[in-house]
Simulated assay, not measured.
Amino acid sequence: MYIHIGEDHSIRVNDIIAILDKASVKNSELLTEFLEHHQDKVMNLSKNPFKSVVVTFDKVYLSPIASGTLRKRSNQVTIQEI
């Protein structure tokens, strides 16, 4: 199943490694360093400041959708698959 992460982009739920909120990224030197190190794989889907970071095997997405909303969507998809 797929989950909509913003700006007409949907990704497979099974490809998601992590969904992080903006506060976690801003307060963690390690996450900031991770984003800088993978800058070539970062895709900004937000016209305004991003609200969450979605890490997949291939890319890192800066999403305009809150991490809680993305988590709920991914849980709904998982429940529907059962």
Rank of each mutant, 00 (worst) to 15 (best):
F57G: 09
T78P: 00
N48S: 14
I5F: 06
L35Q: 03
Q39T: 12
T32I: 05
K26W: 01
M43A: 04
R73E: 08
I82E: 09
T32L: 11
S28G: 00
K51G: 06
A18N: 11
T78V: 06
S46T: 01
I11G: 13
Y2L: 13
K51E: 15
D58H: 03
I65S: 08
L45N: 02
R12A: 13
H38L: 06
K22C: 02
R71A: 10
R71W: 02
E36K: 14
H37W: 06
K59H: 14
G6V: 05
R73F: 09
L62Q: 06
I17C: 01
L35T: 03
R71N: 10
T32Y: 00
F57M: 08
I82F: 06
N48F: 10
P64Y: 11
N48R: 14
K26Q: 13
I11R: 12
L62T: 04
A66Y: 10
V25S: 06
I65V: 14
L62E: 07
E29Q: 12
K47Q: 13
I16N: 07
N44S: 14
N48H: 12
K22A: 08
Q80P: 00
F50Y: 15
V77M: 12
L20A: 03
I19E: 01
I3T: 14
D8R: 15
I3D: 06
V77F: 03
S28W: 00
A18E: 12
G68N: 08
Y2A: 08
V42G: 01
G6R: 04
K72M: 02
I16E: 09
M43S: 07
N44I: 14
L30C: 02
V25D: 09
L62V: 04
Q76G: 12
A23H: 10
E33T: 14
I19R: 01
K47G: 15
I65P: 05
A66D: 15
E7I: 00
L62G: 03
L62F: 05
S74F: 04
V54Y: 05
D21V: 01
A66V: 07
I79E: 14
G6Q: 04
L45C: 04
L20E: 05
Q80M: 06
R73W: 05
Q76D: 13
D8W: 09
I16R: 06
E33K: 15
T69F: 07
T56G: 09
D21W: 04
I11E: 12
K51Y: 07
K22M: 03
F34Q: 10
N14T: 15
A23M: 06
T78A: 13
S10I: 06
S24Q: 15
I16V: 15
F57S: 10
H9E: 08
N75T: 07
I5V: 08
H4G: 01
V77H: 03
D58L: 04
I5R: 08
